[in-house]
C-alpha cells in the first residue's frame, strides 16, 4: 500500500534532493559515467586522437600473454602481502604500548604521525637519498651498528621491494592514531573483570583486545590492501619501475600504457582487472570476517 505523503514531507524530500544534487551530478559525471566508458574502452583500440575502434576481447587476450602484466601483478602482490600485515602488526603493537598510561602520550603520537604529513614526492626523494648505496645513511648505520654491508637497495632487483616496504612502514602513524582511539574506547571494566578471574596479560590481549579491536582491524586491512594496490608515486619518482621491471607496480604500468604509450584501451582493460581484483579481495575479506570479527550487537558503531 502506498502511503500518501504530507506536503511537508514532500517539501523535505525536494530539499533533500536539492542538497545532494552536487554529489549526484558528480557521481554521474566523474564516477558512474567513467566506469561505463572505461568498460567500453577496454574493448577498443583507443589512442585519444582517433575515435575508439571496437576490437572485442583482444585487450584481455593480450593481457594474459603480456609478461609485464604478470610481472606488475607479482610485484604489487609481493609488496601488498608483506607491507600490509607488517604495518598493521607494528602499528597495533605501538598503539598498545601507547595505551599503557604513558607520560608524554601526545608527544609520541605527534612523532609517529609526523612522516604522514610530508608529501609523497618529498618522502620519495628523501628515501632515495637514504637508500643511496654509497652515501646513504641506512647503509652507513648498518655498517656502523652491525657491521653489515648493506645491499644496493633501489638499484638491486632483489632489494628494491623490501626497500619500498621499509619506507612504507615509516608512514604507519595514521594507523597508530586509529588503533589508539580504538583501544581507548574499550571499557576498562572488561579488563578488570578478567583480572579478577585471574587472566594474565596475554589472555587479556587475546580475549579482549583483539576481539574488541577486530572491526577496526578489518577496516584498516581492507583500506590497506586497496591503498597498497594503488602505489604509484614512490615507483614513478624513485625507480620508474626498475631495475629491470623489479618495481613495476600495477598502477605504474597502467599509467605508462595510458599516458606514455597512449594505449588507452589496453590501460582500461588493465584498470578493470585491478578493479576486479580489489573487489574480489574485499569480498573475500568481508566473507571471512564473521570468523574473526566481533561485533557487540548492543553497541552502535
Amino acid at each position: 500500500m502506498k502511503t500518501r505523503m504530507s506536503p511537508m514531507a514532500k517539501r523535505e524530500e525536494r530539499y533533500f534532493y536539492l542538497c545532494i544534487s552536487p554529489w549526484i551530478a558528480g557521481f554521474l559525471i566523474f564516477t558512474a559515467g567513467p566506469i561505463v566508458a572505461s568498460l567500453f574502452f577496454s574493448f577498443c583500440n583507443y589512442d585519444v586522437v582517433t575515435p575508439p575502434d571496437w576490437i572485442g576481447i583482444q585487450n584481455y587476450k593480450r593481457l594474459l600473454s603480456d609478461p609485464l602484466f604478470w610481472q606488475s601483478l607479482k610485484v604489487t602482490s609481493y609488496f601488498s602481502l608483506v607491507s600490509v600485515p607488517l604495518g598493521i602488526a607494528l602499528s597495533l603493537i605501538i598503539a598498545i604500548l601507547l595505551n599503557q598510561n604513558i607520560k608524554g602520550l601526545t608527544w609520541f603520537r605527534t612523532i609517529y604521525y609526523m612522516p604522514s604529513v610530508i608529501s609523497g614526492v618529498a618522502v620519495a626523494l628523501l628515501w632515495m637519498w637514504i637508500f643511496n648505496p654509497e652515501f646513504g645513511v641506512l647503509n652507513f648505520l648498518l655498517w656502523k651498528l652491525f657491521h653489515i654491508q648493506g645491499p644496493a637497495w633501489l638499484m638491486s632487483e632483489e632489494w628494491v621491494i623490501p626497500a619500498l616496504i621499509i619506507m612504507s612502514l615509516w608512514g604507519i602513524g595514521g594507523d597508530i592514531v586509529i588503533y589508539l582511539a580504538g583501544l581507548q574506547g574499550i571499557p576498562t571494566e572488561l579488563y578488570e573483570a578478567a583480572e579478577i578471574d585471574g587472566a594474565n596479560s596475554f589472555n587479556k590481549f587475546l580475549n579482549i583486545t583483539i576481539p574488541m579491536m577486530s572491526p577496526v582491524l578489518l577496516f584498516t586491512l581492507i583500506m590497506g590492501i586497496i591503498n597498497s594496490f594503488q602505489v604509484f608515486t614512490q615507483a614513478y619518482v624513485m625507480t620508474r619501475g626498475g631495475p629491470h621491471y623489479a618495481s613495476l607496480f600495477y598502477v605504474l604500468y597502467i599509467y605508462q600504457n595510458a599516458f606514455q604509450f597512449f594505449s588507452m584501451g589496453y590501460a582500461s582493460a588493465l584498470s578493470w582487472i585491478l578493479f576486479l581484483i580489489i573487489l574480489v579481495l574485499t569480498f573475500l575479506i568481508f566473507k571471512s570476517s564473521p570468523l574473526w570479527v566481533y561485533y557487540e550487537s548492543t553497541r552502535e558503531r
Partner: peptide, 13 residues
C-alpha cells in the same frame, strides 16, 4: 572503495 584508476582514463578524455 572504487580505485580512482578505473575512472582516470575516461575523466582524462
Amino acid at each position: 572503495m572504487i580505485p580512482s584508476q578505473i575512472t582516470m582514463i575516461p575523466v582524462f578524455v
